[in-house]
Design a binder for these strands. Structure first.
Lengths: 122, 122
DNA sequence: TAATTGTATTAATATGCATAATACAAAGAG
DNA sequence: CTCTTTGTATTATGCATATTAATACAATTA
């Protein structure tokens, strides 16, 4: 599991981390039971402050993606726990599809792209 | 064309405006040649500062979605001008699909949702 | 017992968003 | 031509959030 940070991005570092983990879990790169890097290890390795890493872990924990235990580190949760579909996610999906459509992509092209993203690639 | 602002949202006001316009164009609510509200009118009506409205207009102009002319106001551009597909859009799409997948939605459910969003509804 | 884990605390800094009050150039209306 | 409307530029200020920093703590495991 490789984490990369873009310090030029307008996306906050803690969200960059959270988003990469979510995608990795969805694509099977991270499986239930897998351990995430420790807060301090990832901080040292990336140069990002430990509290920023911790903030991402707390967010993912609250969202149900991972669980953290004393001394146990952060562990990817089993997929059985139902995670709520936020209306915000659908709104963001709507925006992405609108942008792709206005860029000239047709319905089937977009559907194909979505299928590829769902299955794993890219 | 109704614009609504959520002052509690973490999405900046100028981006809220931009996103709503992009979606409206994609869904045909706004058509090429249509006029957007004037900066001052939308500012007065919504309570959002005029410079914030202007910032959204400048962004949409730069992205190619609208054009602004002196005295002419803001006009929705024709769809012929090719708008670049940013890699950022695909990344955000990837994140949305991953979130939906982890919430329990299957491939076909997601594809159906995407088709509906593409065609207009919601 | 000693070390490692996520986390809490407090403080400081930086960046971006938003507002406010004005002013200007261009272009259409009369 | 004159006046009004349009988007835009300018400058300043306030505010929220992100990030860093330096410690410290509780729980758990080796």
């Amino acid at each position: 599991m490789y984490i990369t940070f873009d310090f030029q991005s307008d996306v906050p570092l803690y969200l960059q981390l959270r988003n990469q983990v979510v995608i990795a879990i969805s694509k099977g790169v991270l499986k239930p039971g897998d351990h995430l890097p420790t807060v301090r290890a990832l901080s040292d390795e990336s140069g990002v402050n430990a509290m920023t890493i911790s903030k991402a872990y707390q967010l993912m924990k609250q969202e149900g993606y991972i669980s953290t235990e004393r001394r146990g580190g952060a562990v990817v949760s089993a997929g059985d726990k139902e995670i709520k579909v936020s209306k915000d996610t659908v709104n963001r999906l709507d925006l992405c599809i609108s942008e792709l459509r206005l860029s000239g992509m047709g319905e089937e092209q977009i559907v194909d792209l979505c299928r590829r993203l769902y299955r794993e690639e890219e």
